[in-house]
Design a protein around this nucleic acid. Sequence first.
DNA 1: CAGCATCCGACACGATACTG
DNA 2: CAGTATCGTGTCGGATGCTG
Lengths: 126, 126
Amino acid sequence: MSYNRHETLDCKRNPNKDCGVEAALAIISGKWKLKIFKALRQGAPVRFSLLKKELNDISEKTLAAQLREMEHDGLLTRVMYAEVPPRVEYSLTELGQKLEPLFLSLENLGLAYILQKMHNDTPVGI
Amino acid sequence: MSYNRHETLDCKRNPNKDCGVEAALAIISGKWKLKIFKALRQGAPVRFSLLKKELNDISEKTLAAQLREMEHDGLLTRVMYAEVPPRVEYSLTELGQKLEPLFLSLENLGLAYILQKMHNDTPVGI
DNA sequence: CAGCATCCGACACGATACTG
DNA sequence: CAGTATCGTGTCGGATGCTG
């Protein structure tokens, strides 16, 4: 999306009426954010390696970066266990769980979109 | 957000369980999409020049491109009047109006996020 | 196992100038 | 007025290799 996260998230610098909307958008923007949410939404903590497996084709760098952003945004917690081999588990915070209604809205919109597209019988064409 | 719209929107090529979610995300992804929605959500058609004014700092190229994408996605209609000077008006389709609940979810999430950030008293720090 | 460093490409977006 | 054409830029994310 090419959002400028840092500007968008700072409601002091960006104090318009829709700051909330924009902050929320910034929070979920990132190619993998909602897939990560999906992997965590059952509530149980999930390990880094398992996340990587569920989001196939994500690189470790990107996964770590997205997780760090989400942690910074307060969506999830990172718990590190000082073991050998190391283990790190991620789980949703309360705020993170508030993504659920958004997720459902997105699902609804997506369905409406898909239905309409099928109805129109207009292939994407690109 | 750097989504690959074309892949993401094509549910035949991308037939996983969350195709709807991803399609929806692709639809609203783009730095300006939701601001355009906001400008149109009252229902009345809006002219290109007015849109440009409301979304200050958007370039004409980008505005035209985002509008074209949204039209292609079936979110809005473009009506051209053969006048001098030319006039083009944009308004939401039925599908476009289905963005409303999503908008509200985003607002809620954004509010929760902002409240929590204030509560933590942790400046964004970046 | 988890994840950082580095290099690199793709693409979204911006600035500016030009048309019907 | 409502765009296109062209060029330039930054940011996101991928590939690979290295550490504790």
